[in-house]
Computed example of a mutant assay.
Amino acid sequence: MDTKNRHAIGRREFLKRLGAGAAVSTAALAGCAPERGPAADGTSASGEIPTDAMTFRINPRTGEKVSLLGYGCMRWPTVGGDGPDADEIDQETVNRLVDFAIAHGVNYFDTSPAYCKGQSERVTGIALKRHPREKYFIATKLSNFAPSTWSREASLAMYRNSFRELQVDYIDYMLLHGVGMGGGMEEFEARYIRNGMLDFLLAEREAGRIRNLGFSYHGDIRVFDRLLAGHDRYRWDFVQIQMNYLDWRHAREINPRNTDAEYLYGELAGRGIPAVIMEPLLGGRLSKVHDHIVARLKQREPGRSVASWAFRFAGSYPGVLTVLSGMT
């Protein structure tokens, strides 16, 4: 990075933030490659993983202790390989992965009706149902992306199906999914405003069937700004944003539709809204960086994995509630 560029993060600040931030437990990183699973003896390449080393953040509204590393359930292992059963989820392995994560302090599990071709909520619900309800928080989404799901009736059906698939009578963290993507403001209006679904979800939170209400942001900054401008009415409990050390000030260089995470996080922190972080590894790219960068990071802390620097960057910000792993 060019340190003279006003959009660059200085090397000293970068290392300071990573080094001083709350460390993410090694156990949680097992969630980054779920198809491999934990070793049978509970060890990893870095040695035995402690079960009492998780860092927790406090939800300022509810007082809940949320693991700083959350489990993203967008990818689950399958049993079919490349054959006709390639899309069948391996429930036994999912159960083992969830058990391992919970045993090591992970308590936030993020899923959606759209993940794993519609199977993620079901298999995640089966795995979590085997544990006491107070041991975990479930985050899911109203993922009404297709125009055929924009009607109130279709959106309500999707919402109610999430309860059935997850086998719960309340959702801990419910999100409007992917606001700002696709058709921007017009699509947002169709998905959540004109059909009355945002008002419905606000009422569901009031009734206790939703414990925390938020949204995940992708794309059109006008939608993000509009939702935050309405914070006095909506009282967002959290917002999910893409954040990593490249997106912090270089998001638009990666994709012109993206927004710098520095702006997104700053707007949330200024209002006291906790941030949930997606893409801390930028789709896995920050786990495989150039050799000269690896050498510099290893010189600083030889025992740290390259991926851990990205997780620790995101987790070092005090307004972050949890950082999602799970993408391979």
Rank of each mutant, 00 (worst) to 15 (best):
M1A: 14
D2L: 12
K4H: 14
N5C: 13
N5E: 12
R6Y: 12
A8Y: 05
I9Q: 14
I9G: 09
G10W: 06
R12Y: 05
R12Q: 13
K16T: 10
L18A: 10
A23H: 11
A28C: 10
E35F: 15
E35C: 11
R36Q: 12
G37I: 05
A45M: 14
S46L: 15
M54F: 06
T55N: 02
T62M: 04
S67K: 00
L68N: 00
Y71R: 00
W76A: 03
G83N: 10
G83H: 09
P84N: 05
P84E: 13
A86E: 12
D87H: 07
D87C: 12
D87K: 14
E88G: 03
V98W: 05
D99W: 04
I102G: 06
G105W: 10
Y108C: 10
S112T: 04
K129E: 05
H131Y: 00
R133L: 01
E134R: 11
K135F: 00
K135D: 09
F137S: 03
I138W: 07
K141Y: 05
L142F: 04
P147L: 13
P147R: 08
S148K: 15
E153K: 12
S155A: 15
S155H: 08
Y159L: 15
S162A: 15
F163I: 13
E165L: 15
L166A: 14
Q167A: 14
Y173F: 15
M174G: 01
G178D: 14
V179A: 06
G182K: 08
G183N: 10
M185Q: 12
E187K: 10
E189R: 15
I193N: 12
N195F: 04
G196R: 10
A203W: 00
E204N: 02
E206V: 01
A207I: 00
R211C: 05
N212Q: 12
L213G: 01
L213Y: 03
G214R: 01
S216R: 02
H218E: 08
R222E: 13
D225M: 05
D225Y: 04
R226Y: 11
R226D: 10
G230L: 13
G230Y: 08
V239F: 08
Q242L: 08
N244H: 06
Y245P: 05
R249M: 13
A251Q: 11
E253F: 14
P256A: 15
D260V: 02
Y263I: 06
E267R: 09
E267T: 03
E267C: 11
G270M: 02
G272F: 02
V276G: 01
L282K: 11
K288D: 02
K288H: 04
D291R: 06
A295D: 13
Q299E: 14
Q299I: 06
G303F: 01
G303P: 05
S305W: 07
W309Y: 15
R312S: 03
R312P: 00
G315L: 03
S316P: 00
L321N: 04
T322N: 08
T322L: 08
V323Y: 03
L324M: 15
S325P: 04
S325T: 14
